[in-house]
Computed example of a mutant assay.
Amino acid sequence: MNRFLSHAVNRIDAKGRVSVPSLFRSVLSARNVRELYCFQDFVFPAVSAGGPELLDRFEGQTNGGDPFSPDANRMSLLIHGGGVFMKLDPEGRLMVTDFIRSFTGITTDVMFVGRSDYFQLWEPAAFQEMQAAARAQVRDRGLT
C-alpha cells in the first residue's frame, strides 16, 4: 500500500504521545519518510502531515512568481508560519504538541484520517461531524 487510507482513533498517553496507526507507519516507511512536515489545514480544524515532498509541492506552487506578491505572502503564512517538522519516536509515536492541540481542539484522543498522499490529525467528534456533512452534501448533489 502506498497511500494513506481510512481512519483510526488512538489515545494520547500520559507523556503526550500518540501512536501513529501501523498502516500509516507502513506507508511512511515505504516512502522512506523520516521527518513529517505538518501544517495547519487551510480549510478544516485539522493538522495535515506528510513527507517533505508535501512542503515542496506547496513551495513549487508559489515559486516562479513574485515572492513578495500578496498571494505568495499569504501562502507563506500558511505553509511556513503554520507548519513544523516533526519526527516519530522509535515506537512510531508522535508528540501531540500545543501546535496540534490549539488548532484542532484535540484533548485525549486523535483521529488519524488518510488523505491519499498525506494524513490528518483531527479531534474525533469534529471529524465525524465534518465527514457526515460532506456525505450529506455529496448525497444531496447526487453522485456524478
Score class of each variant (00 low, 15 high):
A126L: 11
A49S: 10
R31D: 04
M75A: 15
T97M: 03
D89K: 04
K15W: 04
R25P: 03
D66N: 15
F24Q: 02
T62E: 12
V9Q: 02
N2F: 01
F4Y: 07
N73C: 08
R135P: 00
G92T: 09
S102C: 09
L143S: 08
T104N: 03
D41I: 00
A134P: 05
R115D: 02
G82I: 15
F127Y: 15
V113R: 01
D89A: 08
K87G: 04
S76G: 10
M1F: 06
G92V: 10
M75Q: 10
A72C: 09
Q61K: 09
G60I: 14
H80E: 05
R74F: 13
A30G: 03
A8L: 13
A134V: 12
A46Q: 09
D71A: 15
A72W: 06
L5S: 06
L55Y: 10
D98V: 09
T104C: 11
L121C: 03
S22M: 11
N63A: 12
E53A: 12
G114F: 04
A30W: 00
A132I: 03
R139L: 11
E59C: 07
R139I: 02
A126M: 05
M130C: 07
H7R: 15
F42N: 08
T62I: 15
M75T: 08
G83H: 05
P52E: 02
E129C: 02
A133W: 01
F58W: 13
G82F: 11
D117A: 03
V9H: 00
G92D: 09
D13V: 14
V47D: 07
N10F: 02
I106E: 12
L88R: 03
L94F: 07
F58Y: 15
P52V: 05
D41F: 01
M86D: 09
I12D: 05
D117R: 10
V113L: 07
N73I: 13
Q137P: 01
Q61F: 12
R93W: 02
A133I: 07
D41E: 08
V27Y: 00
R34L: 12
Q137Y: 02
R139D: 07
I100S: 04
R141E: 13
